[in-house]
Lab assay of single mutants.
Amino acid sequence: GLTEEQKQEIREAFDLFDTDGSGTIDAKELKVAMRALGFEPKKEEIKKMISEIDKDGSGTIDFEEFLTMMTA
């Protein structure tokens, strides 16, 4: 499992990506986040990433899903 410290770091990354503070990361926010990390993702790639992570089919990534992605 994760230490509380690791969870906190992932939470901070999540909050950075969640620019509108909605508690979820949408495609637009993910794209901005990827760019910040030096990637140039295409729209299809973003969609694919979200569909792989987005277990509940909401079209957005919540913290639990993000946590799973970061620790996979």
Rank of each mutant, 00 (worst) to 15 (best):
A36C: 14
I50D: 02
E65C: 12
F14I: 00
D20C: 06
T24P: 01
L30V: 07
K43V: 13
D56Q: 07
E4D: 11
D18R: 07
A13F: 14
D15L: 13
M70E: 00
M49H: 03
T60E: 09
L37Y: 04
F39C: 13
E40G: 07
D54W: 08
E12C: 15
Q6M: 09
E4K: 10
E65Q: 15
M49L: 11
F63P: 01
K28N: 13
S22C: 05
E65P: 01
K7A: 08
T24N: 04
Q6R: 15
D18Q: 03
K42G: 13
A72I: 11
G21F: 04
I46G: 02
G1D: 07
K28F: 10
R35I: 09
A72S: 10
E5A: 13
G38Y: 02
T19S: 10
D15P: 01
D18K: 06
R35W: 07
D26E: 07
K42S: 15
E9W: 15
E40V: 11
I46A: 03
G57T: 05
K31W: 15
K28W: 13
I61D: 00
D20W: 05
F66N: 00
E64D: 09
G57F: 13
M49K: 04
D15C: 13
S58G: 06
E9H: 15
E65F: 10
K55F: 06
P41W: 14
G38M: 03
S58D: 12
T24A: 07
G57W: 10
Q6T: 05
L67D: 00
A13Q: 08
E45Y: 12
E40P: 03
E29P: 00
S58N: 12
D56L: 10
E9Y: 14
E45V: 13
F39K: 03
M69V: 06
K7I: 13
E5W: 12
A36I: 11
K47C: 14
T3I: 03
I53Y: 15
Q6H: 09
E64Y: 10
K55I: 09
G23K: 03
V32P: 08
A13S: 04
I10F: 12
I50V: 07
G23M: 03
R35Q: 11
F39P: 01
A33V: 14
T19N: 06
G57V: 05
F14Y: 01
S22Y: 03
T3G: 04
T68A: 13
E52I: 11
F39H: 07
S22T: 08
A72N: 10
A33S: 01
D18M: 04
I25R: 00
I61W: 04
E64C: 10
E44C: 14
S58V: 06
G21V: 02
D18I: 05
R35D: 04
T19R: 12
K55W: 10
S58L: 08
I53M: 12
K31M: 15
L2P: 05
K43F: 13
S58M: 06
M69G: 02
F63N: 00
E29F: 14
D20K: 04
L67W: 09
R35T: 06
F63H: 01
G1H: 13
D62N: 14
V32D: 14
I25W: 04
E44L: 06
K28D: 13
I10K: 01
A27S: 08
V32W: 15
G38E: 01
K28G: 08
F17S: 08
S58Y: 06
D62C: 09
F39Y: 10
M34K: 00
D18C: 09
E40L: 08
Q8C: 12
M70Q: 01
F17G: 12
R35E: 09
E65D: 08
K43N: 15
K43E: 15
T71L: 13
R11W: 06
K43S: 14
D54V: 12
I10N: 01
Q6Y: 13
K31R: 14
A36K: 11
T71H: 05
D62K: 09
